[in-house]
């Protein structure tokens, strides 16, 4: 059975310093085993400016078993599958420890974005490009960031404004918009049913 009181604590803890880390974790549904994590693209990398969503699935044995994580946002990176979003990261496999948290795992993924490990690739095509032709790699990665990781950022402030005017609290509006990937109608539906 997932230790939900720990997950609750993790969520509070993580969202408390969201302004510092930029990393947030929110429940996707109401049972706390499906979550969505958000990490900002690290500054100084082709991912800068993008907001990346990560699908998190907590297995029954959590926290003694690692959470299952994969990118929901398409991303061009040697250690992340450009097709499925699967992540090649040791702490999500055999190096997991129950003393790690969702936030530390997301921080590690963020670190992976700034420091790819092409010697241990998930996506062979990307890894090869990274090593043989870094310029093309960087511009592809930037292009993917522009195309896939910024969709909701355009006009997000207007959407927030609109929903807040409807009478929903701003914090809730922002997190809901994030969960549904910026879709205004879906956010409204979710806010009304909550």
């Amino acid at each position: 059975m997932v230790d939900f009181s720990r997950v609750q604590k993790e969520l509070q803890e993580c969202n408390r310093d969201i302004n510092v880390s930029g990393i947030s974790v929110n429940p996707k549904s109401d049972n706390l085993t499906n979550l969505i994590g958000t990490i900002p693209g690290p500054i100084g990398t082709p991912y800068e400016g993008g907001t990346f969503k990560i699908d998190i699935n907590l297995p029954d044995g959590y926290p003694f078993e690692p959470p299952k994580m994969k990118f929901a946002t398409k991303v061009w990176h040697p250690n992340i599958s450009s097709q499925s979003g699967a992540i090649c990261l040791d702490i999500l496999k055999d190096q997991w420890s129950p003393a790690l948290t969702l936030k530390t795992a997301l921080l590690s993924i963020q670190a992976l974005l700034s420091a790819p490990e092409p010697d241990d690739p998930q996506d062979a095509v990307v890894a090869q490009q990274y090593l043989k032709d870094y310029q093309t790699f960087a511009s592809t990665a930037r292009y993917w960031t522009e195309s896939f990781a910024k969709i909701s950022s355009l006009g997000v402030e207007e959407k927030v404004q609109k929903l807040v005017e409807m009478g929903f609290p701003e914090g809730l509006v922002r997190s809901t918009l994030e969960v549904v990937g910026g879709d205004e109608n879906m956010a409204l539906e979710k806010l009304c049913s909550a």
Partner: peptide, 8 residues
Amino acid sequence: NQGCMHIT
């Protein structure tokens, strides 16, 4: 069942 070619 998942992951990269680097098997441990």
